[in-house]
């Protein structure tokens, strides 16, 4: 894929399109999502931002070391969530986070499909060595998804992050190494070949 560092990023899957958030055109859905305690329960972002504050917030994403992409349903062209990538270039790794704001997409496998595409971009396109994910301990859907996607649990940080209710949550640290992912790609490819 052709992408110039520092310019808006566009990624696609079978069912979704991811496009760098344009701070000058924040979708109305963002305001709704960022005000919904259920949607924001496990997110680190501040809650209750209006469009102007969201525009300011997303203007800090530079499409270099910080990338925020709106996730669109490819068919109905509506935003359903946000995928964020934070790159630590000197260490050749990044961490990612995903928010699915449209609750009708919860449990549909959307996160798995979207993250697989982002993983491919980060390992093949960006040549990163490691992708990390930090999950709050009670975020059972995310624990499920990272496990299903063969990330390794590297540890649990106890009472590590403040939640929106004022308490402190444990945080599970997951990671996937490029070599692990490449090996899995090769195994999947071999299996497909064997099946003919």
């Amino acid at each position: 894929m052709k992408w110039k560092y520092g310019t808006p990023l566009l990624l696609g899957t079978e069912n979704y399109v991811l496009q760098s958030v344009n701070p000058a055109a924040i979708p109305d859905e963002f305001v709704t999502w960022f005000s919904d305690p259920e949607v924001m329960r496990f997110m680190n972002d501040p809650m209750g931002m209006d469009k102007s504050k969201l525009a300011s917030y997303f203007s800090t994403y530079n499409n270099k070391t910080r990338i925020a992409m709106t996730i669109y349903d490819r068919k109905i062209k509506s935003p359903i969530g946000i995928f964020k990538i934070y790159i630590e270039a000197p260490h050749n790794h990044c961490h990612t986070s995903v928010l699915i704001g449209d609750k009708s997409y919860w449990g549909t496998g959307a996160v798995l499909e979207i993250r697989e595409r982002v993983i491919s971009f980060l390992f093949k396109g960006m040549k990163l060595n490691k992708i990390c994910g930090y999950v709050r301990g009670r975020n059972f859907p995310a624990l499920f998804n990272y496990t299903k996607q063969k990330f390794t649990k590297e540890g649990v940080r106890k009472q590590h992050m403040r939640n929106h209710e004022g308490g402190l949550d444990d945080v599970v640290e997951f990671a996937l190494l490029r070599e692990e992912w490449l090996k899995r790609q090769e195994e999947n490819s071999n299996e497909e070949t064997a099946r003919g």
Binding site: W106, G107, T108, V111, F140, P141, A142, L143, F144, K148
Partner: peptide
């Protein structure tokens, strides 16, 4: 396992634990 039961998705996993 989660690999063999199609309906055992992330949302249902949360419901199961709760």
């Amino acid at each position: 396992t989660i690999e063999t039961v199609e309906k055992w998705d992330s949302l249902n996993h949360m419901r199961l634990i709760l």
